[in-house]
Design a protein around this nucleic acid. Sequence first.
RNA 1: GGCCCUAUCGUCUAACGGUUAGGACAUCGGCUUUUCAAGCCGGUAAUCCGGGUUCGAUUCCCGGUAGGGUCACCA
Length: 494
Amino acid sequence: MNNNMKTKVVTRFAPSPTGYMHIGGVRTALYAWAYARKHDGTFILRIEDTDKEREVEGSIDHIIETLKWLGINWDEGPDIGGPNAPYLQSERLDSYKKYAEILIEKGLAYADPYTKEELDGFRAKAESEKRPFLYRDHRPKNPPKWDGTMPLRLKIVDVKETEWVDEVRGNLKAGPEALDDFILIKSDGYPTYNLSHIIDDFEMGVTHIMRSDEFISSTPKFLALYDALGIDRPKFVTLPPIMAEGGKKKLGKRDGAKDTLEYRDEGYLPESMINFLAYIGWSPEDNTEIFSPEEFIGIFDINRIHRSGGGFNIDKLDWINKEHLKKMSYEEQEEFILKYIPDSLKKLDGFSNTVMHNITPIIMERVVKGSDIKDMVNNGELTYFFGKPVYEVDQLFFKSTKIKLEEKYVVLSTYIEKIIEILESINDGNFTKEKIKEAIWPYAEEVGRGDVLWPMRYALSGLDKSPDPFVLAEIFGKGETISRLNTALALLRK
RNA sequence: GGCCCUAUCGUCUAACGGUUAGGACAUCGGCUUUUCAAGCCGGUAAUCCGGGUUCGAUUCCCGGUAGGGUCACCA
C-alpha cells in the first residue's frame, strides 16, 4: 500500500475544480511544492472532484495552466499519471467505499436516515438557541442498514477535547463541540472531502499536509477518522490566511479575488508572483527580499512560516516585478518587450531588431509590468522610434518662456538651424549621446536650455515627453536626426 | 452565540527576555535635471489595552479588546 520510506517527503496540492485559482491557492501549492523540492521529495497534484454540483467545466485545465505558468511542476498527477493513479477523486470511489465498509463493520459508521428538511430544522433550532449545531445530539437510536442511498456518517465514540501538534502553530486544541458525526459518503455516492482526502493522503503516502487555517476547526474530526481507521496521521502544516487588499477579510473568490492568470495577462513574471506570494506568510532568515524560485526552494523552511495572516499589496508586487525585470538579461528583456509590441508597430518601416535592441533600456526603466508597454504603445510613446512623428507646430514652443510670441517662428527656426549646424559638425563615428550633448550644451546654455532642448525633443519624438533628446539622437543616428529636425524646420517656415 | 486561531510602522516583515525596535513597499522632503521616468540621499511612521512573572518584557502567563476562521450531503 504505502511503501515510501519514512524519510521521503511527499506533499500534495489538492484543489477542487470549481473554477480558477486565486493567489491563496497558489501560495498553498507553492509551499507544498517548495517543501517537496527542497527535500527531494514527491509533489502530487490531485483533483478533488467529489462535488459534482459545484464543478466547473474546464477548471482542471485552467488549474494546470496556472501551475505550469508559475513553474510549479508535479511528479504525479492526473495529466501525467503516477504510481498512485488515478489522481481524480471521482475515479477512486471504490477505495473510499472499501474504507467505509471497514468503518461500518467496526460499528464506527452508520446511515443517516433524516431528510434534508429534518436536518435543517435541527440546525435552525440550534441556531436560534445560539448553540452550535451538533448532529450527534440527534443520532438515531437504530439507524437503518446503509444501502448507499443515504449519507453515511462517522460515529464519534469518544467525545472529548482534542489536542494535536501543528508544525506551524504548535500545540492546538479544540473543545468537544468540534467533534461531530460528520458525513463520510454523501447520498449521491461520492465521499466528502473529510473522508476522501484522508484516504488519498494515506494511500499516496503524503507526509505533510499544507493547508490554510480554515481547516483548523475541522481537524478534530479528521483526527477522529484517522483513529477510527487506525492509520497514522501525517504532519499538519497550517498556513496563515491571505487577506484581500485593503480589507480585513480573508481573500476569496466571493469577494472578487482575481484569477491568477490575470496577473500573467497583465504582464507580471511568474518568478515575481512566486517571490511575492512566498513572502506573504513566510520570510527568509536573512530578510532577502528578491529571490528566484530556485533560491526560494533553497531557503524555504517550515519553521519560518508565520502564524498570522498577511494582506495582498499590489505596490509591493509591482516593485518585486520591477526587480525581476532588472535581473533579466538584455536578450530576455528584448524578448519580454517584443511580446507586448503589437504587429501594427512591427510592420512599420523603421522597425528593426537593431532599433529594438537600442531602445530596450529606455523601455525597461519605465516599465514595471508588461501591460505598461502596451500603455506606452497606446500613448504613442514608442511609435516614433519606428516611424516619422506627426507634428503640431505650436507644440514646438512647449514651455518656451523667453521667446516673444510675435517672433517665435523666426527665433525657433534660428535655434533649430543652429542645432542642425552643430550636429553636422560631429563625425558619424562620434555620434553618441555624450558627444552630442557636449557639442550642443554650450549653445543651449547660451540661449536657454529649455528653448533649445524642447524643440529638439519635439522634433525627434513628436511628443512633449520623451527620453533625453541626446539619447534619441544617438538611437536615430545622424542622418535621421537631422532629417527630423529639418522636417520641423520646414514646418516652422510655412 | 459556542469552539478555535491571530495581534510589531499605512502595508509586507525582522528582532528565538537585554536592540536608539531593523529592513522593504508606499508616503513625504532633498539631490540630479531639458520633459516623463529612473537613480541617489534623507525624513515621518509600529510593539492593541490592562494585569502578572522577571533585575529587565515586542518576546513568557492571564484577562480584555479587535480581527480572522469554523459550526454543510463545500472543499
